[in-house]
Design a protein around this nucleic acid. Structure first.
Length: 960
RNA sequence: GCCAGGGUAGCCGAGCCUGGUCAAAGGCGAGGGACUCAAGAUCCCUUACCGCAGGGUUUCAAGGGUUCGAAUCCCUUCCCUGGCACCA
């Protein structure tokens, strides 16, 4: 295996020596600032992540070689519980975790150090920078690296929150969060850092429905308030000892567990007694909204742990209800046991309330039959419920029985009906976890109301309008994101921005018990890269980074001498930082994966708009899609199947991988990772490398000829194409030109016998420079062996020389290729064992027809009759009779469809000279003797009368 | 369901905005050939169908429409993908 690593390391060291990675303000020089949305520190990354990062480096390199001073900083986002989670697992030597670390190349002796969260973060910061980004040859300004857990970064975030507060965008309102009675707030997430069970639980929003019975209420909890019109009875678990509680002067009956949960969410709850479930069977209670009396029946599926342990029954749409009602009707023992009358039981019949495509009047019944469920307690009921709920919510429509809600879509009716009942005092909101969650301390975790939760008010109308207006001006890629983002910005509402508990992050400046949560501290940060430089080398210390400091350097507010005095930062340094900020900002491109479209990018836009002046608003966002595993999953970090990045880099070489990312597909589609595909790019790099190496060493003392003019024309045209593509950041198009088209041109040049040193050198300069953005190591290696000076990475891409771009020259070679393929085709079709081929070039009169057509096209008078008429005034043309008028017709149509001047090379090329000059080449290529004759020549040899078919651009061919 | 984006030759994928020069780029795969003792690499040719002269025929999810002309514009239908929130 070739040792790509040492070649790559060599050039990376040279770039560093040359200081190419460092970005410094150069007043007056155009700047370009680009970032990728920094990754969360969650462990080892996989090959998929490098896709977006590679785009950023390639774009940065391209900008650098086209006259820009480029700032490409990197950082990491470590806010959250990822670090804690990993450290905890490492501390208790969790087998899977240790295995995961070792498999990804973590040195064994490093592991004991990783028991502290911050050590984990620092460890991975180092991995990301050194094993991923530097390894891939990125020219990022490493000096500016920052991490969300650094104290100086925290100062910046606290300042940002002061600004949000000043702008009136921080609001407080109640919020419902998981809470342990002993440990306080806990994080419920799949990593299960804080908890020992229930990491997949979700917070669900129930509606408590109050059913009047005498002067008390049976309280049911439902996720489907829109089904109240279908209520026909009420379920109570006869085995459960229910509680009576006082709430706002009312008496409620709920399960004991529900009573406990309610105290966490409602004020003034007081237990006043108990009542066995069995006692309630046979009661009549008044259902909310419909105000009908419905009977209470026994049901074993009422789990006191879920909701309130009491359930309103809507058999039409709830499979559990349907099957249980059937069971009640069939079970005679219930009548005796609970004294229910047959009449009462018979009076309970399902009511059809929702019309769902693909279902009959009673969706629950349909689903039960479809799944073959026959009795209550069947485990398939869970699935049945989920499916009916989902279909009902998305596709259902309320039927006529639903009063004022008739005809509404379910997803709309749900909120409306819930609100109507809450307004009428018949219902209340309630939150519960979808499954049992147990804290590490062993206590049960419940949802608790938090009254003073802070939110950022992204729903603010003025902010939204201004942000939307700015987004319209931005360069957003893919273009459809421009359209979508308008909707996303509208849809963004208040967002909880702080949280309690065991999380890493910055303290909320207005109340230290809160930690600023993960999305909210990563929205304005790109601007901090202009400042982190000075914090990292300790020219400023975190304690100096006061509100006045940021106000001055970011916003230009305050008086420099005052700020200098209060912070202890010299006026000179303050001035310098301020100028840096003004120079580098706004951000030109923020590139991130598609997951950011509805989360990070809108928040990024809002925060910039809320805090920074117009001239500092971001200019562009580029969204990249993923590299996926099989079955188009994201390559999962946790699944472990993905290849560690350093291993892949060693195996394929960094440049091959970079080219793979840049070219394998449009930025805006997912790509399935396949080593085989990467290998074809490895091969592609090798082929280009080989072709260049061969050109460098080729004997090349021939004088410049036609083919040299052709190559220079092609390469300068490509240069222009590359620039056009890169205007749109279309790396893929650019790579097609550089690694495919240009290689093909070189092959043709070689095949045509090109070997002029000056041409080759000129072509190589263009070509190698054009390779630099995507395959920089290969480019350097080639640049050096070609004997060119300096580093390509430090050079400037030449402007295309339009004076050497020649349509005529390119047309000539196209013609030769066409002639070759025509000959091949004729030989194949005709099955002739030919010894000789005769080419007849077009007669002069046909050229004249085209000249006339071109002139008429120019002056706008071209039409079939006009051209025919004009041609007939020319004796030399007219003489050809019908052939002349037919040609005039065809030419008139062809020319009028084309751009003016497009056909010029066709009629003005000296075809005889061209083909005669290529005779030797053609003869070698096709293995036949080749003669070139002019169709105009006197007594031309033409035994098969082929010559008359000759036309400009299309010589007649005779095989014999 | 709502919003958005798609369905192109064996596969991947350009073209579609700005209709004609589109049987439709390029790559991969496949077949043939050159080079070679041989393999690999490299290079050349072919790869919808028909055709003993460079041509013809039928194609760009399906159906309909606009137009002298449609892969490209419009309408309908079918199918696929993503997002639908407090989760980074």
């Amino acid at each position: 295996m070739t040792d790509y690593g040492s070649m790559e390391a060599k050039w990376q060291a040279r770039w560093q020596e040359a200081g190419l990675d460092k970005a410094e303000r150069i007043d007056g020089k155009p700047k370009f600032m680009i970032i990728f949305a920094y990754p969360g520190v969650t462990g080892y990354l996989h090959v998929g992540h490098l896709r977006g990062y590679t785009y950023v480096d390639a774009i940065g390199r391209y900008k650098r070689m086209t006259g820009y001073n480029v700032l490409f900083p990197v950082g990491t986002h470590a806010t959250g519980n990822g670090g804690i989670s990993l450290a905890t697992k490492i501390a208790r030597r969790d087998e899977k975790t240790i295995d995961y670390l070792l498999r990804n190349g973590c040195p064994e002796d490093k592991i004991p150090e990783l028991e502290k969260p911050m050590s984990v973060i620092e460890f991975f910061n180092d991995v990301y920078v050194n094993e991923y980004w530097k390894r891939f040859g990125f020219l990022a300004d490493w000096r500016r690296f920052t991490c969300t857990l650094y104290p100086d970064y925290g100062k910046f975030i606290q300042w940002q929150f002061h600004k949000l507060k000043d702008a009136g965008l921080l609001i407080q309102k109640p919020y419902y969060a998981p809470f342990c009675p002993n440990c306080g707030p806990v994080a419920v997430d799949p990593s299960e850092t804080d908890i020992s069970k229930g990491g997949r639980a979700e917070t669900q929003e129930y509606t408590l429905l109050k059913f009047r019975h005498g002067d008390e209420f049976l309280v049911a909890a439902t996720l489907r308030p829109e089904t109240v019109y279908g209520q026909v009875c009420f379920w109570v678990n006869p085995e459960v000892e229910y509680r009576r509680i006082r709430k706002d002067g009312e008496t409620w009956i709920v399960s004991p567990q529900a009573a406990e949960k309610l105290t966490l969410q409602k004020d003034g709850i007081e237990e006043v007694g108990t009542i066995p479930g069995s006692e309630m069977i046979g009661w009549m209670c008044e259902a909310p909204m419909i105000h009908r009396e419905i009977p209470v029946f026994p049901a074993s599926f009422c789990n006191p742990d879920v909701g309130t342990g009491l359930v309103t029954s809507v058999p039409s749409d709830a499979p559990d209800d349907w099957i249980s009602l059937e069971a009640v009707k069939k079970d005679p023992s219930l009548k005796e046991k609970y004294g229910l009358t047959q009449e009462l039981i018979d009076s309970v019949v399902p009511i059809s309330i929702i019309d769902i495509k693909g279902y009959g009047d009673f969706p629950a019944k349909d689903m039960i039959e479809r799944l073959g469920i026959t009795a209550p307690g069947d485990p398939k009921l869970v699935e049945a419920k989920k499916q009916v709920y989902k279909d009902g919510y998305h596709m259902g429509r309320m039927k006529d029985v639903c009063g004022e809600f008739a005809g509404m879509r379910v997803d709309e009716a749900k909120d409306k009906m819930r609100q109507a009942m809450i307004d009428a005092g018949e219902a209340e909101p309630f939150h519960d976890l979808s499954e049992e969650v147990v804290c590490r301390c062993g206590a049960r975790v419940h949802i608790r109301r938090i009254d003073d939760q802070w939110f950022i008010n992204y729903g603010d109308a003025d902010l939204t309008e201004r942000t939307k207006a700015h987004a319209k001006e931005m360069d957003l890629n893919p273009p459809e994101f421009s359209e979508n983002v308008q909707g996303i910005l509208d849809w963004f509402r208040e967002r909880a921005c702080v949280r309690l508990g065991n999380w890493l992050g910055t303290r909320f400046p207005f109340d230290e018990k809160w930690i600023i949560e993960a999305i909210s501290d990563s929205t304005l940060y790109p601007i901090y890269y202009t400042i982190s430089l000075y914090a990292n080398d300790h020219r400023i210390e975190p304690e100096q980074m006061t509100l006045e400091f940021f106000d001055y350097v970011v916003l230009g507010k305050g008086d420099i001498s005052g700020v200098s005095k209060s912070t202890g930062v010299s006026e000179e340094l303050l001035d310098r930082i301020r100028k840096d900020v003004l120079y580098w900002y706004p951000l030109d491109i923020n590139l991130g994966g598609k997951e950011h479209m509805t989360v990070h990018f809108p928040a990024f836009l809002f925060n910039h708009m809320a805090i920074l002046p117009d001239e500092m608003q971001p200019r562009g966002i580029t969204v990249n899609w993923y590299v996926t595993g099989k079955n188009s999953d994201k390559i999962s970090k946790s699944k472990g199947g993905a290849q560690p990045i350093p291993g892949a880099a060693a195996k394929f070489g960094v440049d091959a991988m970079r080219l793979y990312y840049a070219h394998v597909a449009s930025m805006f589609v997912d790509v399935e990772w396949s080593e085989e595909t990467v290998l074809t790019y490895r091969q592609r790099v090798d082929r280009v490398f080989g072709a260049v190496t061969e050109l460098i060493s080729r004997e090349s003392d021939a004088p410049a000829g036609e083919i040299d003019a052709w190559l220079l024309s092609r390469f300068n045209r490509h240069l222009a194409e590359i620039r056009t593509a890169m205007e749109r950041y279309d790396l893929r198009q650019m790579c097609t030109t550089v690694y495919f088209d240009m290689l093909n041109d070189i092959r043709w040049y070689t095949r045509r016998g090109g070997s002029c040193r000056a041409t080759i050198d000129a072509a190589l300069r263009i070509w190698i420079q054009a390779m630099m953005p995507v395959t920089p190591h290969t480019a350097e290696e080639l640049w050096e062996s070609a004997g060119f000076d300096g580093l390509v990475s430090a050079g400037q891409l030449p402007e295309p020389d339009r004076s050497v771009i020649s349509a005529a020259s390119e047309h000539g070679e196209d013609m030769i290729r066409d002639v070759m393929s025509d000959i091949t085709e004729i030989r194949k079709i005709a099955g002739i064992e030919a010894k000789r081929v005769v080419l007849y070039t077009s007669p002069e009169w046909k050229r004249e027809v085209m000249r006339r057509a071109a002139a008429m096209r120019e002056s706008g008078e071209l039409s079939v009759p006009a051209l025919t008429k004009a041609c007939m005034t020319d004796e030399a043309i007219k003489r050809n009779g019908k052939a002349a008028s037919e040609l005039a017709k065809k030419v008139a149509i062809d020319f009028s469809r084309s751009e003016s001047g497009a056909w010029e090379p066709v009629y003005s090329t000296d075809e005889f000279a061209l083909l005669d000059g290529a005779k030797g080449f053609l003869s070698d290529e096709i293995g036949l003797e080749v003669d070139v004759l002019s169709a105009d020549a006197e007594d031309v040899y033409d035994p098969q009368k082929k010559a008359r078919a000759a036309a400009p651009g299309r010589p007649a061919i005779l095989l014999e």
